[in-house]
Amino acid sequence: MNAGIPIQFFLILATLMFFVGVYGFLSRRNLITILMSLELVLNSVNINFMAFNRYLFPHKMEGMFFSLFIIAVVAAEAAVAIAIILNIYRRFTTINVEDVDEMKY
């Protein structure tokens, strides 16, 4: 099903997605949107794994399992991150990352 599409296309797509995520991480103020940017970043990594697996090592399944575990870790990370965000919200009554700067000089 992937005939006629070079691997570079997948990689470039993943790269763009990755850096869009990075941009979001750097520029958004709301903690939840920052978390969403992170999801984009992780998702782009998954695409890379899958593409490498299919194009370079089609007889193996490493890439797929890596993606599988990454998804599991992301689920755990999201759960903990959201718990932390809720806690921050309760403590500071805001989830604006610029206002949460207790740990400064």
Partner: peptide, 28 residues
Amino acid sequence: YFMLNYQFLAAIQLTLYAGGIVVLIIFS
């Protein structure tokens, strides 16, 4: 993922990512 012929992972992506995590985010 479907295009790359990884149906299982695509299903996982749909249920876990799109279903689970996004719902979690929306709740928060």
